Computed example of a mutant assay.
Amino acid sequence: MLKLENLSVGYPAPRGVVLADLDVKVEPGTFICVLGRNGAGKSTLMRSLAGLQPALNGAAVLDQEDIARMRPQMRARRVAVVLTERTASPGLTVDDVVSLGRQPFTGWQGHLTSEDRTVLADAMERTGASVFATRLFDDLSDGERQRVMVARAIAQTSRLMVLDEITAFLDLPGRVEIMALLRNHARQTGAIVLLSSHDLDLSLQLADDVWLLDGNGGLIVGTPDSLIANGHIGRAFDTEAVKFSIPLGRFELVR
């Protein structure tokens, strides 16, 4: 289980608190999409949950242990992270990069067991990365890189996956495929998958739950249907040009 306990995230003054006093419980096997306008704090929240940025108050607790206080190796075993930053890996092939997902389990010598190799092959096959396994990672397109990074995260066999805007460089079929894969991964393995996204339509179709950042330092949690029915999606995203239609379940241009 993942629990946010009175969690506040943000930065030192003058920027200060971005999200405050978050109290949320997440059951294993849940696929969650984190939604919000630009600047609402999605990346700040994701980095704090991953233990990459200190919280201002409270804690994110995974299986009764504060993620920020975990030893680095233990955190690498329990939490897989894919961020938006472009990663450079000079000289490494796709197979090498995905294999790094097993590093927390291999010991100082880094020897892969037959079980490790089975996990790696499965992760690459499921994400569609196996077809370019021998290519240099730095030669891949942005969309191909994201598939490889998702494969590496799956290969970590972690309890929590934190993925920040990973579908931004994928075309529509690729976004559907990866998001459906992550939902199935959560359900099949019992992992908790947190995905921040600007793809509202797909998120509302595929997420088990949505974390909606309201832009005022708060977090609204619920199923996609409940957030739509209660008008939260419209209040968060409506503009003078675009409005969310509750009956249709999508955004429409205002004429």
Rank of each mutant, 00 (worst) to 15 (best):
T87Q: 10
T87K: 05
S89M: 15
P90Q: 13
P90I: 06
G91H: 06
L92I: 04
L92S: 08
T93I: 00
T93W: 03
T93K: 13
V94G: 05
D95S: 13
D95N: 08
D95Q: 06
D95G: 00
D96T: 02
D96I: 01
D96F: 00
D96Q: 10
D96W: 02
D96M: 05
V97G: 10
V97F: 01
V97A: 04
V97L: 12
V97I: 13
V98A: 11
V98D: 14
V98N: 11
V98K: 00
S99L: 02
S99C: 05
S99H: 00
S99T: 12
S99D: 11
S99I: 02
L100N: 05
L100M: 15
L100T: 10
G101I: 03
G101S: 00
G101Q: 02
R102L: 09
R102G: 00
R102P: 11
Q103P: 01
Q103G: 01
Q103E: 14
Q103F: 13
P104F: 06
P104K: 06
P104C: 09
F105I: 07
F105P: 07
F105M: 05
T106W: 04
G107Y: 02
G107E: 14
W108P: 15
W108G: 10
W108V: 15
Q109L: 15
Q109M: 09
G110Q: 05
G110M: 12
G110R: 00
G110D: 09
H111F: 10
H111Y: 04
H111K: 11
H111W: 04
H111A: 12
L112N: 10
L112S: 08
L112G: 06
L112R: 07
T113W: 03
T113I: 09
S114K: 04
S114W: 04
S114A: 15
E115S: 08
E115Y: 13
D116T: 02
D116M: 02
R117K: 15
T118G: 12
T118R: 08
T118K: 15
T118P: 01
V119A: 15
V119T: 12
L120A: 10
L120V: 14
A121S: 09
D122N: 15
D122R: 15
D122W: 03
D122L: 11
D122P: 01
M124K: 04
E125M: 13
E125Y: 01
R126S: 06
T127R: 01
T127E: 10
G128W: 01
G128P: 14
G128M: 01
G128H: 08
G128C: 01
A129G: 03
S130V: 07
S130C: 04
S130R: 08
S130N: 08
S130A: 12
V131E: 14
V131R: 14
V131Q: 12
A133E: 14
A133F: 00
A133W: 00
T134K: 08
T134F: 02
R135H: 06
R135M: 09
R135N: 12
L136R: 08
L136Y: 07
L136Q: 11
L136T: 04
